[in-house]
Design a binder for these strands. Structure first.
Lengths: 341, 341
DNA sequence: AAAATCGATACAAACGTTTGTAGAACCTCA
DNA sequence: TGAGGTTCTACAAACGTTTGTATCGATTTT
């Protein structure tokens, strides 16, 4: 019966209990150095360590080895539908390799962002995954030269100063626009995300590009920018867009939340989707298949994004410097929010 | 221009740069001990620390002080709709107090759960919030006597061995049953969650209790147990329930995911909700107002649960031992998935 | 038989802090 | 002037590891 003692058991405790020096215990307990100690003794050490309930103290070992076995992940909004599957993927990959994950929520607040990064660096994280970058992010500068490798996720910065794992937003929005055009739409509005975020900017570019390809005249592809990737701001932007362009037959929203905001406006203005107006989202967030009407959207494999980001980070921690970014292929999912005009 | 040096700056570095002993630097940098050093010198120290870009090493300080400033949070499913807002609340409260949060996903896998707890304890977390407890959880035993205070969240264990923050499930399900009864339903089925989880068990009890209060005969309140709180398992359970009780007019699902699984079955069997059958969920997960039909459900304030759990934990870390659990008051939200039979 | 080699273990330093204590300088006051 | 205080700073130990080096038998080599 291993009654847990008040004072934690240390290497020295199991050393004296076994009658050897504690450095020997250290080697015996570490599989990589176990061969340096006589098998007989090693066995005795393992045994007493077990009965004493020895637990290594990572702080001490990290202090010595300079590797904490912890990585930091910063997301802009932990409670959004987008990030949980991503986080799950990250945590899955990292735990497998023996790392644990500190998660923090920047809430798009620069001061908080700073605080978080400082806290993570003080805690000597071995690496960072940042999903909260803005296009021109002064906060990144402060740590790019730091000892912890960094990878960006979902959003990148203007100069690609760190490797990033991204959805191919330009292509993705293109899929949506072409889908709508294929249904016969020629008056398509875009509700863009904030221009300060790479996702907002890239999707806007993708929209304009696709419209150009399809020779949709400028007057028939109005754009309104939403102040945030949120349902509320999507609502506001949609009201503006519809007021200025009553003849629109379709809307390409920069993400699913904005699309849901549009749903609210449709309901309020008595517009039936897709009969009166079509709309597409972006991300294929969980449960977009069960909203009413089920949302046609651009799927990005969120868990894969997390897996990929953590894989990239682990590689960088291991010293392999990956050049360039990872672009995840998006995929259009047609549901019932789009129909012929 | 604070060019980041290759070797991190330590107390000693700023000490020699200022011409004082490094212990003096330590005191000067710590607001609590700054009064021990002459203001003039303290100012000089702060200044050189700033220009050198000094960053404290938490590992070293934690090793000495035995407080890591990190707490661990274990959830059963990070990607579910339920936990992200809870996590956000926890992280919010903890960061405010200077703690950072290690999050891990047990995926309901005992072995993984063990690994996670061991990893967190090795990293000397100051406390633990466990949302992944089962009713009889041997894993908890291993750490209950440990140095890190623990609070349970969402689920509790059979004996209440640690303080818990819970939704009042019995009352909550009661609200749903009474709502349905008020609409005239007298044949109400329950799809229960796993009996090994306190949420599954408590909600089943609440259901039976409420039916007893309303004198609904046993034959008219059938129960089927879902193997998990998931849409897929909810689907399976619903098929069974409907097959065995074709005359049911309402279903009380143990949570929203199970209810969504029922939606799938309804669609498949041509049942129109709420015309042919009513259904209630539990949790009021995000976006349950936008599914079709909008789901009537029992709301629990998820962020509050996180806030409360972290508050409780901080109190315990601070040495105040809270007796008893926190029961959050649930609230019924009537939407369009329920109507008179 | 002395020297060289080797395997196993003990010793000690280091990682970067915090904090108790010793000591030095200065002041106060009789 | 010198005893007794105050302030401030330096010294040193400790936290629990990892890891380079020294030591010490035992074995092998010449």
């Amino acid at each position: 019966m291993p009654a847990e003692p008040k004072k934690p058991v240390t290497l020295k405790d199991v050393a004296t209990a076994t009658g050897v020096h504690f450095s020997t215990v250290s080697r015996a307990l570490n599989p990589a150095t176990r061969n340096l100690v006589k098998p007989q003794i090693a066995a005795r050490i393992l045994e007493t360590a077990r009965t004493l309930g020895y637990r290594p103290n990572s702080l001490a070992s990290s202090l010595r080895t300079k590797r904490s076995g912890v990585v930091g992940v910063v997301v802009p909004d932990m409670a959004s539908l987008l990030f949980p599957p991503i986080l799950e993927g990250i945590e899955h990959n990292l735990l497998k390799e023996g790392y644990m994950t500190i998660v923090a929520n920047s809430a798009n607040d620069p001061q908080r962002h700073r605080l978080i990064l400082a806290g993570m660096m003080e805690r000597q994280v071995d690496g960072l995954i940042i999903a909260s970058a803005t296009l021109r992010d002064p906060i990144l500068d402060e740590w790019l030269q730091g000892p912890a490798p960094m990878v960006l996720m979902n959003r990148t910065d203007e100069f690609g100063r760190a490797p990033a794992v991204l959805s191919d937003d330009i292509k993705g929005i293109g899929l949506a626009v072409h889908h709508l055009a294929g249904l016969g739409h020629r008056r398509i509005g875009h509700i863009a995300g904030p221009a300060s975020l790479s996702t907002g900017a890239a999707r806007l570019n993708g929209f304009l590009l696709a419209c150009a390809e399809l020779s949709i005249p400028e007057a028939q592809r109005p754009v309104v920018t939403s102040a945030a990737f949120s349902r509320e701001e999507g609502r506001r932007a949609c009201i503006t867009l519809l007021a200025q362009n009553p003849d629109l037959t379709a809307i390409v929203a920069a993400n699913d939340m904005i699309a849901l905001g549009c749903y609210d406006v449709f309901a309020q203005q008595g517009l039936v989707c897709p009969r009166d107006i079509s709309i597409t989202g972006y991300n294929d967030s969980p449960f977009m298949d069960v909203v009413s009407p089920p949302l046609s959207t651009v799927r990005i494999h969120q868990r894969d994004m997390g897996l990929e980001a953590s894989r990239l980070l682990l590689a960088r921690i291991g010293g392999q410097d990956m050049p360039g970014d990872v672009l995840l292929r998006p995929q259009f999912v047609a549901r019932q929010s789009t129909a012929a005009p």
